[in-house]
Amino acid sequence: MQRRSLLKVLAAGGSLGSSLLPASLLAQDGEGTQALSVDELPALEGELTLYLGRGEGGLYENVLEAIQQRNPDFELNIRRGPTASLANAIVAEAGAGLRRADLFWAVDTGAIGLISNEGLARDLPDDLVNQLQDTFRYQNFAPVTGRIRTLPYNTERLTAERIPTDVMAIPDSGLSIGWAPAYASFQSFVTAMRLLEGEQATGEWLQKMGRVAKSYAGELGVVMAVERGEVDMGFANHYYTLRLKSGKPDATVDLAFTNNDAGCLVNASAIVALSEGELPINFIRYLLTREVQSFLATEAYEIPLVNGVAPPQGLPDLSTVSPPDVNLTRLADLRPTLDLMRDVGVL
């Protein structure tokens, strides 16, 4: 899987669906373009089958229902299930010479890697890809919304300056730390660390952390433990803290970030087109509209990945955080991560 730089070389799929869009908004020479309004999109007509990975809450369902209501001549069949299971089903169906899904919306980009590696993902047109922020442009899938790894900390016990900006230094910080090693997003974070820092350094980091960290079943549990002052800080996706503060404005927790390492990894939900034709591509365009991206940002605290839509309240702009450059599809390689975590005794 290559990013935008390779797209320029490949110049793949540039014309699909583009003729229906305003010329002023089409990509020029690989530059980014602003997200479109739904009013600028063609109506959807026909029938598609979407495989939808189980995700956070039910807000993806709200989006899908809204798209169908807006397009009375469009019928969307949805098969729901765990993301990894659906990815395996798509590969198995392809192996049997079948294609039941036209689209696959996965909550974790890693699962898309499986589809992509099997050559089942269609290339996306440039004008669609260029609506995404430049670090989220991929040739054959579209990240939809993101989530960032954060360090929630108790604001009564310490300040952000007290927290290392290097994730590798955190075990030696002298702070009490909460983590949820069984949680899928944490394991993706460890996978990113493996890719960025190597197996040995990651194994040593896990061992040190295993000695100082307190384990929780999930990352909301981590954030709540931080807020209670049970631990000074923790590891968690950003939205738990934002949602806790939304429901409890005086919560004594805030977010800190590491700098350009796995500690501030941005992972994303993503969609891939599996069948030919303009309809699947145009469906993806709806997910990247200003309206859908704003809805998911305000209602689910997810991070918009298109150009020109503000992040959820309480989260800094991604450009100020400097997340690491990791090919998200490589996060599917979980087995070595789980082996490593078991070897050092944290799982």
Partner: peptide, 12 residues
């Protein structure tokens, strides 16, 4: 885990 994010906004 999939619903507690929604729920925490209502009653932590």
């Amino acid at each position: 885990e999939g619903v507690e994010g929604d729920l925490i906004e209502q009653d932590a």
